[in-house]
């Protein structure tokens, strides 16, 4: 038989909360023979009865209304969230579809950007194309007829043309010769290469003129206002005689071995583009100064590399 001390530990759980009916039976027997434990058990029973007899308090009369008001407030907040994400069976497929569309679009943008980067990283396109892309057309003072006759007129090397026809290159060579004779700019001949008059196929001079329809756009602009745009001429050359100076510049470029020489006449100014070696720039500048007033674009000064493209803007002063 267990001692009273052991029984006392179990009494608070007697009779319904014990682990087994055997335990309950064992306590019942002990209580029958132990008055002290029976007294404690009776006190515990009364305690349980006092507790279980405690009355239930009525909640405040408007507690339900308060709870529901708070719940409705919460539901209003919740419904905004639900509008976005619930019901799941409808919203999730829609959201997945939207996410896929965004992902595909992002991929497309990324791929497009990658192509652009690759193009940028690829070897530079011929200057003619490049410049056509970058320069906006300028109003032309020439008539449409003149424009047609001059537009995109290519001046191939004399050797590549049938005999008897005058190419622009041959003209250039002739003009150069006349100028030499006339002494308009005799200094230009100081550094004339040995193979004078010979123009390589790379040194072809192309001539372009902007569309007359754009005349009205910038007639009021100063000839070199185009320098204020992203496509600035690298070198500005202010001269008295536009055509003759342009021809002189072309000749200088030819003599310095420049390639892809393109002339573009745009409303009162002439732009000449060419590719040439960096080390020849000093000579070019020295000769241009003999023709007119020279201004050099700041961004051009710092340009590096073996071959550089140069844009000479010639305007009348």
């Amino acid at each position: 038989m267990k001692k009273c001390k052991d029984i006392e530990k179990l009494l608070p759980l007697y009779p319904n909360d014990l682990r087994s009916p055997d335990e309950a039976e064992m306590i019942r027997r002990h209580l029958a023979s132990c008055a002290a434990c029976a007294e404690k058990s009776a006190a515990l029973e009364k305690t349980k009865k006092l507790v279980s007899d405690l009355g239930e308090l009525a909640p405040p009369p408007r507690l339900r209304q308060k709870i529901m008001a708070a719940v409705r407030e919460e539901a209003a907040k919740k419904s905004v969230w639900e509008k976005l994400f619930y019901p799941l069976r409808v919203k999730i497929p829609v959201q997945i579809a939207a996410a896929l569309v965004v992902a595909v679009f992002a991929l497309y943008v990324y791929r497009t950007g990658e192509d652009t980067l690759q193009k940028a990283a690829s070897p530079p396109a011929p200057v003619v194309q490049k410049r056509q892309e970058f320069f906006l057309p300028q109003p032309s003072e020439t008539s449409p007829k003149d424009s047609l006759s001059q537009n995109n007129r290519k001046i191939p090397s004399p050797a590549s043309l049938p005999e008897g026809k005058r190419s622009a290159a041959a003209e250039t060579a002739e003009v150069f010769g006349k100028q030499t004779e006339g002494g308009s700019h005799p200094e230009l001949l100081a550094h004339q290469p040995a193979a004078e008059g010979r123009v390589s196929s790379k040194s072809e001079v192309k001539r372009e003129e902007s569309a007359p329809a754009l005349d009205a756009v910038s007639k009021t602009q100063r000839p070199m206002d185009l320098s204020g745009r992203a496509q600035k001429p690298d070198i500005l050359l202010g001269v008295a005689d536009l055509e003759r100076s342009a021809a002189d510049v072309e000749k200088i470029l030819v003599r310095l071995g420049a390639r892809n020489i393109v002339r573009r006449t745009t409303g009162g100014e002439i732009l000449i583009f060419a590719e040439m070696k960096k080390q020849d720039m000093k000579d070019l500048m020295a000769r241009l100064k003999l023709i007119g007033r020279v201004e050099v674009n700041e961004s051009f000064v710092g340009r590096t590399g073996g071959d550089i493209s140069v844009a000479v803007g010639i305007f009348r002063e």
Binding site: K9, P12, L13, D17, A43, L44, T47, K48, L50, V51
Partner: peptide
């Protein structure tokens, strides 16, 4: 169960 036993015992002593 152990907490309940202690709680009842403590409450009985308090009520006494």
């Amino acid at each position: 169960k152990s907490r309940l036993a202690r709680a009842r015992e403590a409450l009985k002593n308090g009520l006494l």
